[in-house]
Write a protein that binds this DNA or RNA. Structure first.
Lengths: 244, 244
DNA sequence: GCCGAAAGCTGCTCTCGCTCAGTTTCCTAT
DNA sequence: ATAGGAAACTGAGCGAGAGCAGCTTTCGGC
């Protein structure tokens, strides 16, 4: 197993606050209860109570709400370093389902342990609250995405956001990243149909902007892509790196 | 001034936890720094730092994100009893603008006072965190609204949600409520144009479901309306009333 | 190496919601 | 009373994206 300071969560939180050895070791303790989950088997279920939270170590997950009509809206994808169901440990009932997209390695975190860790290392608490606030900012940005951007901008913006998030944990560059999502999942996240996503991806490819193929996103012209959809990633960085 | 236990915030939190006199008086102290804000003058500005939070006592506000293109997406409206900018006191920079829709009375709350109140009355902390979680659940529901519902369902769902929220603070019944929103604001919240909102409202009126006119929402057939848009308000109630 | 399922891809038609270009109503200031 | 401005409302035309139907490629299991 890799050292804690190379773990995705440490990389991510470290981009926001400088973590001392003491804080890293507390983080390490939270990582003890390591579990593996299989793709497609629900991890947190809408309506269920007393769930644990998890820190995602490897693999991708997604959280979604199901409609009575059968259609689903994916609220967000989670990538390594992200929390799963942080809210559902503060509150009794989960209001959405979390499902692994790939096989997933995650550390179970009990409310007690987390609060305990907070009281010992306030800086860690700040960092985790920052992460929670960032998650909320992303949901808000997805709302803007659905409400005010067309299919093309929406798709490009979303794939750029994922890239920025993955870059933080060392899983992407401006060249691109490995992406296990199907076009169906992308459609459920972007409020579009898979058929239409397919056409939009073709357009983006033909325009030399990005290629979504064979489990990989390739930014063929990163700068032009960013400019063409007006992607402003400050909502992901919040205050910029290195508090204090 | 009315007694604290009749204030919107006490009514709202009281629906979730039973508040003792001691807790009510702590809540009362948070209400000391009462301010008045004029409609249309920004209260919290996107990108600004070190903002205060507020508890809304009377009037309506809205929070939105502005696009480079000029269009805006309203993330949510705030009604009496709601917090404004709770997140921006935990974190340095606001990622959205908050603007009073009407003239507004609100109590300024400093981070210090809030955290101090939490340590004295843990039950109040639970209640406030519940409120924050409920706000997030609403944003998620708005996401589903934009992603997976058509204009008619979207509009009806949104007005039903507002009704449910206002009922909690005694400002609505199943018959309807006073609503200071213009059709333009409704459009910006629902990702539609004002023109189309207008047509949808006419349809809903002609179908005898609801009337949106002269600053008032009237539910002409509440039950049929709820059924027709599959409105499930559990995300607003979370665990139901009266913890402990 | 073959089979079946899932994912990816394409063409055609239709409709929901946007755009543009107004008119009408109401509200406020003079 | 009246002008001016916002909000509400209407009609005609158009286009982005949905729905449907079918084809092709990829990939895991035997």
């Amino acid at each position: 197993m890799t050292a804690i300071h190379e773990s995705p969560i440490a990389l991510k939180l470290g981009a926001f606050v400088a973590l001392s050895d003491a804080e890293l070791s507390v983080l390490d303790e939270l990582h003890r209860r390591r579990r593996t989950f299989l793709a497609g088997r629900d991890l947190v279920l809408q309506g269920q109570s007393d769930q644990s939270a998890y820190i995602l170590a490897s693999g991708w997950a997604c959280s979604y709400k199901l409609q009575a009509s059968g259609s689903r809206q994916i609220v967000d994808f989670q990538v390594p370093g992200d929390f799963l169901g942080l809210r559902s440990i503060l509150f009794r009932t989960a209001d959405h389902t979390i499902e692994p997209v790939t096989n997933v390695e995650a550390s179970e975190v009990h409310a007690r342990d987390l609060l305990n860790a907070f009281s010992r290392t306030p800086k860690l608490a700040t960092a985790v609250l920052w992460a929670a606030s960032r998650d909320e900012a992303m949901v808000v940005e997805h709302l803007v995405n659905l409400g005010r951007r067309n299919a093309r901008e929406r798709t490009a913006h979303f794939l750029l956001e994922l890239g920025a998030r993955l870059k933080l944990v060392g899983l992407a560059t401006n060249a691109g990243y490995e992406c296990p999502l199907s076009q169906y999942m992308l459609a459920d996240a972007l409020g579009l149909t898979a058929v239409h996503i397919n056409r939009v991806l073709r357009e983006l490819r033909e325009d030399g902007l990005l290629t979504f193929q064979k489990g990989r996103v390739t930014f063929d012209d990163f700068d032009r892509l960013v400019a063409s959809v007006d992607f402003d990633k400050t909502y992901l960085d919040q205050d910029g790196p290195l508090l204090r």
